[in-house]
Amino acid sequence: MILLGHGSGGRLSHQLIKEHFLPHFVNPALALLEDSAVLDDLAFTTDAYVVTPRFFPGGDLGRLAVSGTVNDLAMVGAEPIGLSAAFIIEEGLSFEELDRLVVSMSLTAKEAGVPIVTGDTKVVPKGACDGVFITTAGVGRIDPGFRPSPVKVRTGDVVIISGTVADHGIAVITRREAIRIEGELSSDVAPLVPLVRALRDAGLEVHAMRDPTRGGVAQSLIEIAAASQSRIVLNEKAIPIKSAVRAACELLGLDPLYVANEGKLLLLLPDARAQAALKVLKSHPLGEAARIIGAVETGQPGLELITTLGGTRRLRMHSGELLPRIC
């Protein structure tokens, strides 16, 4: 039976995909399991968006639905050229709310420089869905000279993050149900397309890119380590995090490395290119707080963390839903 944990992006999600989808949908484009499938010179991706609450500090479901999909295109180096949007609407949703979401989608698509070119709408009876679910798909054009992929990661690469971690997940969870933590807790949801464009225009040799959404920085790097059979070592002290976000994580018993981001970029590239990449990132508002947080070293494949204390621990895939705990 399917549990909420199967949608968490962690180990259960992986199992679900591996055991129930991949055996039936066998083909080379899917097999790579990258953020987007690559078909000749096109990148193609789709994502369904459900979030409670639909409006949260720093963003909303509409902005998320556009950003998430264009970011998946950007992560394989593609320039988005068109999006689709499909709405499943629960009867009773107000026009006012729908309009707010649609306007937000339109503004976000403009930021990313991509048109929403096709769509669909279904209305379902009350209770059949929660408010509105949005599914977007996107097509992007691949530049053969700029094609990051986890399999290109090599020993000697460094890991860069474009800004602070855990902002989105904490902004959403602290608005959900009863956990009312306030403060500078704002989602980072944003289209990363301009940032990736800048990296591409700078002609940098980028080995891999990933936007660390569900499952956070840890999940993304675990996947990259597995795909490239490399050992990635993170330096906990270097990982940027807003102090209010850290405090909220401590209150709720969550590990910020496993909390979702929606406007951050992980970049793996040769050490010799690191300073140039940082310069490009920092010159853009989305990358102001960019920083080197780790490196690819020789040794057993996987993700390790040098803790602030100086100890070492191995980071593993998270198993299920992130729940606030008291213990």
């Binding site: 102090s243 405090a247 401590e250």
Partner: peptide
């Protein structure tokens, strides 16, 4: 067991306190 963190009191209203830690605010 038992997660707990130190938070500074900003204001008190009856049996409720507004508290803060590193910019995270909570009513306890």
């Amino acid at each position: 067991m038992c997660l707990a963190i130190p938070m500074r009191v900003i204001s008190v209203d009856g049996n409720l306190g507004r508290v803060e830690a590193s910019g995270a605010l909570l009513t306890v």
